[in-house]
Write a protein that binds this DNA or RNA. Structure first.
Lengths: 186, 186
DNA sequence: ACATAAGTAAACCGATCTGTCTACCATTAT
DNA sequence: ATAATGGTAGACAGATCGGTTTACTTATGT
């Protein structure tokens, strides 16, 4: 693994577990054995490293989620598969996402205001909602695919928060039941 | 206003907007004009101040939410009123909660691990779920009040997250529609 | 009147923060 | 062969962190 990738991996793991402001550059260096000069050779600042970490996590997460959804079929089936995927995530059955500690983007977003982090997190959430919506075009005569996708997103966000903060690891199952009801209305 | 209350108010406002680790003790002092000696006379440490801030916000929020719910009646009506209250919060129509910037407990929780903050946040969420549950005893023959309350909590958490991170200020309306569907099943 | 408590201002402490710098080593491509 | 690149080790800088201390100034209650 190249040095930049090594740094991004270690930084993500530490940021995800302890928070971004709580983890200093020196700790990332100590954990990886990389020299400080090398870090600042590849990244202009801690913020630049953080940006790379956010893009890395975005790619890992989106690749995992979309492949899980597409493997289940199209339309409604794909959307419901989203909640099965979340359930696996909450129960630490998805190695590539690392042990579940909530949504990294939600946590990162909360540590900043009027910052690049906020727009990156918003974009990440928007991309997911857009992918959900793509699976819901023409599903309902009464509700637009955009409105349905927003509602599904509320269920998804709620499941993640509830699983993390309240420790309700079965939140995805509950969210799925409500999604079934929502997508059964005609 | 007493000095401790002044500090708690200012600390909450700054923590809520910028994050806890991002706000130093000196900034809180500068904002309030209080001397450092005075702060450490009333609070043993930044952690102690933070604990007071969390308890303060918990009380403000719970008082507001329960009064809004109880004013709407009992049972299902109270639960649905929760989402009307959230809608007001998201649109900054609730002065006592300050301009909406997400759930303080969700954000605080994300900045720590294995810390007093985590248990306080979990307790806060649990108290809300318990209050919801109290309004749902005997509501359904198929689902327990505990299960219903957990599902309502998923909707509530999802609405807050979606409104904050994605900027979807109408998330509470969507969540309410799903709550109506959930509580109409017999 | 006087002791006690609560307050201010500001210097100070050690630790840690992000980021820079010097000096040296290993690889590799021209 | 040699110049350029990527790397290590670690000292260093300046700022800021949480927290303590000294010295002085109000209030307040008995």
């Amino acid at each position: 693994m190249t040095k930049p990738d090594l740094l991004i991996h270690a930084a993500f793991k530490l940021f995800y577990e302890h928070g971004i402001h709580a983890v200093g550059i020196n700790r990332i260096l100590q954990e990886t054995g990389v020299a400080k000069k090398t870090l600042y050779h590849h990244f202009a600042s801690k913020d630049a490293l953080l940006e790379a970490v956010l893009m890395y996590r975005d790619q890992i997460f989106m690749d995992w989620l979309t492949s899980r959804m597409m493997a289940a079929g199209e339309g409604k089936m794909a959307v419901l598969a989203l909640f099965d995927a979340l359930d696996d995530w909450f129960h630490d059955r998805v190695e590539v996402l690392l042990p579940f500690k909530g949504c990294f983007f939600m946590k990162a977003n909360g540590e900043f205001s009027d910052h690049m982090v906020n727009s990156l997190c918003q974009r990440h959430k928007h991309n997911i909602t857009a992918f959900i919506q793509a699976n819901l075009v023409g599903h309902s005569a009464h509700l637009s695919s955009a409105e349905l996708a927003q509602s599904i997103s509320v269920l998804k966000e709620g499941a993640i928060s509830q699983a993390y903060v309240a420790g309700d690891l079965d939140a995805a199952k509950r969210a799925k039941a409500m999604a079934v009801a929502l997508l059964s209305e005609k």
